[in-house]
């Protein structure tokens, strides 16, 4: 398992947070329980299994929703 923290461009509506949470949870390798969208710091944090899903896939899904990804950090867990 790895944990990722993705910094996004400023989030403005709380429903954006819901959308991003939904999109991230939709991936099979992402631990749904761990997904946290920090509205005020505009960050997404989650744990994932890097054999099943790559962080780039998640980044792309979020970017497709219209939220610019600024920086991603991945750490071993």
């Amino acid at each position: 398992m790895k944990s990722a923290s993705i910094q996004l461009d400023t989030l403005t509506c709380p429903s954006c947070a819901q959308k991003i949470e939904g999109a991230t949870k939709a991936f099979a390798g992402v631990d749904a329980e761990s997904v946290k969208v920090l509205f005020n710091s505009s960050k997404v944090k989650f744990d994932f299994d890097d054999e099943k899903v790559s962080v780039e896939d998640v980044e792309k899904a979020i970017a497709d929703l219209g939220y610019e990804v600024k920086k991603t950090r991945v750490k071993d867990k």
């Binding site: 509506c13 939904g22 929703l65």
Partner: peptide
């Protein structure tokens, strides 16, 4: 409308 569509895709009825 795009935002609304994306929201519905993840089953959220948003303001959009």
């Amino acid at each position: 409308a795009i935002q609304a569509y994306q929201a519905l895709k993840v089953k959220v009825v948003s303001i959009d």
